[in-house]
Computed example of a mutant assay.
Amino acid sequence: MNWDDLRLFLAVARTERLSAAAAMTRMDATTISRRIKRLEQALEQRLFEHTPAGHVLTDHGTRLLEQAERMEAAALGVQRSGSAAGAQMAGTIRLSASEGFGSRVIAPHLRSFTADHPRIEIDLVASSGFLNPSRREADIAVMLARPKTGPLITRKLTDYHLGLYATAAYLDGAPPLKAKGDLLRHVLVGYVPDQIYAPELRYLAEVDARLEPAIRSSSINAQAEIIASGAGCGILPCFIGDAMPGLVRVLPEAVDIQRSFWLVVPRDLRGIARIDQFVGWLVATSERLRPVMLGTG
């Protein structure tokens, strides 16, 4: 299999249009189409469905995307390890991420990047909401959903799971909690309804449409601390709940929610050394932390 064909496959998968992939790779769209067909013939699998919305991945294409992205991350990791190259890179990267992922996943591991690249300055904007990479408010964004429009390069960064958490002390003094329906009798911690900035955060409604939080915060870190104080139970990302001393996961089989983080970069920033290096580091770090993100580590 030709790696250059995989590189073109990644470009089409991320942009969903031959014209956008051509602009990204500086190749002719007809050539890219021919190379994709060659790849499909080599694999004996159809990788894209041609729709009015663009090139949409088939199931085979989705599986290949995961493999190709791991290969890309490994290649970028090798490139990143070159200290001489790293010493030459300088500038600022503004990274937008959700509060939980930014503070609990990126921040504790960021030193492994800054130690290798001391001349690159990082602005980590970890908040309830996202800066808009389409308007160049951020150089890189980690988002809860894949943007549908804009001159952007997007890819799935990692899946993650969420579960129901509480303290043992809370559970001892609360009504029995043996099924999802029992949650109607419990003190629930969750988001302020009119402050939910993305539909992917409406966890309680996914468990049971009747559930309403009695203690609310716009901050996932504040919710975690409220739950850890024993004031109630609530849904947390496993990378937060599993790491907090005193919290136990409740009803793990009945309450198991999956979400994804998406990596978003303005198209005209790819190819800039410091951006590519950070993207490679972030992809490699997320892959290494995959068990933590899925609640299995």
Results as ranks from 00 to 15, higher is better:
Phe113His: 04
Ser112Arg: 14
Phe130Val: 07
Gly100Met: 08
Gly100Lys: 03
Ala126Trp: 01
Ile106Leu: 13
Ser103Cys: 07
Pro133Asp: 12
Ser127Asn: 07
Glu99Leu: 13
Arg94Cys: 10
His109Tyr: 08
Ser134Asn: 09
Glu137Asn: 06
Gly102Met: 04
Leu131His: 02
Ala107Val: 07
Glu137Pro: 04
Arg136Thr: 11
Leu110Trp: 04
Leu110Phe: 02
Ile122Lys: 02
Ser112Cys: 09
Phe101Leu: 14
Phe130Tyr: 11
Pro133Glu: 13
Ala126Lys: 05
Phe113Tyr: 11
Ile93Lys: 00
Ala97Asn: 12
Arg135Phe: 10
Ser127Met: 10
His117Asp: 08
His117Ile: 05
Gly91Tyr: 06
Ser134Val: 02
Arg135Ile: 01
Asp123Ile: 09
Gly100Ala: 15
Ala115Met: 12
Pro133Gln: 11
Ser134Thr: 06
Val105Ala: 08
Ala97Gln: 11
Ile122Met: 15
Phe113Cys: 12
Glu137Tyr: 05
Phe101Cys: 08
Asp123Glu: 14
Glu137His: 08
Ser98His: 09
Pro118Ala: 15
Val125Ser: 06
Glu137Val: 06
Ala97Pro: 12
Ile93Pro: 00
Ile93Glu: 00
Thr92Ile: 04
Val125Gln: 03
Val105Asn: 01
Ser112Ala: 15
Arg111Gln: 12
Ser96Met: 06
Ser127Tyr: 03
Arg119Lys: 15
Arg136Cys: 07
Pro118Ile: 14
Ala115Pro: 05
Leu110Met: 13
Glu99Pro: 08
Ile122Gly: 03
Ser134Ala: 15
Leu124Gly: 10
Val125Asn: 03
